[in-house]
Write a protein that binds this DNA or RNA. Structure first.
Lengths: 187, 187
DNA sequence: TGTACATCAGTGAACGCGCGTTCACTGATGTAC
DNA sequence: TGTACATCAGTGAACGCGCGTTCACTGATGTAC
């Protein structure tokens, strides 16, 4: 072969990362293949020497972004710190760098089973990670905490009144802490 | 005027209702004006004698669907019953007839401020309704409960494993009950 | 080491299609007499 | 009451555009000798 394996893998990764960013910012359906390729410094025609379809890229982008945040609880320094960081205005205001679940769950739900299966696999891993950081591990509690975080961030993003948006973030943090049986406030 | 006011209003309402259904099922961006008009038994050209743009229809459809569920807590017979019904598989499996917030929050967050303002107004009313049904009224608790319901329903819809999906619904119900300070189980 | 060749990542024009929106029209129905 | 006219909700062709995907190509770089 001509270009090294490494070269091709690098390009592919750049495309996946550009896609993960754009998709979170504007939605998968609203972003064209040409835009993603341009973000990666390429023209659109080369797309199909890397991916079978836009759908295949969507699945890879979801997987990539889920993997990128897989260790974010440990990185934050524990569940309480993670919850706090997750519900910060900074996260709300930068969806392209944030949680791909909050940005795209509803859209993923409308995608083919193959894409949903990829999401499901990565979600399971993340839920395990939440559970492992719980004072008293319980899968149902981990699921409920994540659902609360995702729902809260989305409501805070949709609302047009900044004051209400901030209140929602605070309310979500208190609720997530309460569900995880952490002490009420502090940081 | 020629056709009665009533006739025009009826048509308009049929279009808004068709839109609210299609948008919830497939997303606003993925549904064309022609499809909505066909659902309402019309051709696409007449659309602009009712609405200024697709965006205007989106805002109306959101408002309409939010209004339609405004009294659903009282209709369900209280907050516990509402939470239970909201997190049923039947609701998960029929987004076109269900909560428009769960179906479209993330997409609404990417729409113009005017549309987000309409959503915000209706959301405030719904949060008030949750709060009024709380044993101890508290805006933050109402916000957290709704965020938990929305996040839970969305995760349950996206996941490809039915068993996990059902677990998530149950976990969400337990959490929402706990946040609202209702007794643990029952129905 | 230097040259010829083969590979294939990446280019850019082209495809068919569906989109939101516009527009000249038509024909059902309300109003005037 | 019956007829002529005006209105405008609804029709369907057409617009420019961006989409996902295909394809003939090119040219940088790895391999063979």
């Amino acid at each position: 072969m001509r270009y090294s394996e490494e070269h091709k893998e690098n390009t592919r990764r750049r495309v996946v990362e550009a896609a993960a960013k754009r998709f979170r910012k504007r939605g998968i359906g609203a972003v064209g293949v040409a835009t993603v390729m341009a973000d990666a410094g390429l023209t659109h025609g080369g797309f199909y020497s890397h991916f079978a379809s836009k759908e295949a890229l969507a699945a890879e982008a979801v997987a990539h972004a889920m993997d990128a945040s897989a260790d974010s609880i440990a990185a934050a320094g524990g569940l309480a710190a993670f919850i706090h960081a997750y519900l910060q205005p900074a996260h709300r205001d930068a969806p392209e760098k944030g949680c791909i679940t909050a940005a795209l769950v509803a859209e993923i739900a409308r995608h083919p089973k193959s894409t949903r299966a990829v999401f499901t696999k990565k979600l399971r891993a993340f839920l395990k990670s939440i559970e492992a950081h719980l004072p008293t591990p319980d899968p149902a509690v981990a699921q409920a905490i994540f659902a609360t975080l995702v729902g809260t961030l989305q409501l805070a993003r949709a609302v047009s009144d900044p004051a209400l948006s901030n209140q929602i973030l605070s309310a979500g943090e208190a609720a997530a802490r309460r569900l995880s049986s952490l002490e009420p406030a502090g940081v």
